[in-house]
């Protein structure tokens, strides 16, 4: 079936450098620095990336960071909890906007 997303496109990510190599190199240097061991371990950063991948619902990122998490020694229980964190924040973000709904409704109502 025709679809916008193809798994094999993940490996073509570097082709984005062809349109503007300078910006691509800067992005890559920043990206690699972000994921290097720092105050957080590479394993912890991969779990954060996995959660964010679900929050932004990027299938490429979910594929890449599921592999990265396993390769960093994380287990399915930890990865599931990371996804729940994304879910809780997304759900909570929707719910907290209910306060706006309540404010508007309160203003309009007698």
């Amino acid at each position: 079936m025709e679809t916008y997303y193809h798994p094999q496109d993940l490996s073509k990510f570097a082709e984005m450098g062809k349109g503007n190599p300078e910006l691509w190199e800067k992005f890559l240097a920043y990206y690699n620095a972000v994921f290097a061991e720092g105050a957080l371990t590479e394993r912890e950063k991969a779990l954060i990336a996995l959660a964010v991948a679900h929050a932004v619902q990027c299938p490429y990122c979910i594929d890449a960071y599921t592999q990265a998490c396993l390769q960093q020694g994380s287990n399915i229980e930890e990865m599931t909890e990371a996804v729940h964190v994304a879910c809780a924040i997304r759900g909570g973000a929707a719910l907290v906007h209910g306060v706006q709904m309540r404010n508007v409704a309160q203003k309009l109502s007698m």
Partner: peptide, 12 residues
């Protein structure tokens, strides 16, 4: 590794 992926950094 328990699957089709590479091992993590040994020290980590």
């Amino acid at each position: 590794p328990v699957g089709a992926f590479l091992p993590p950094k040994q020290e980590a």
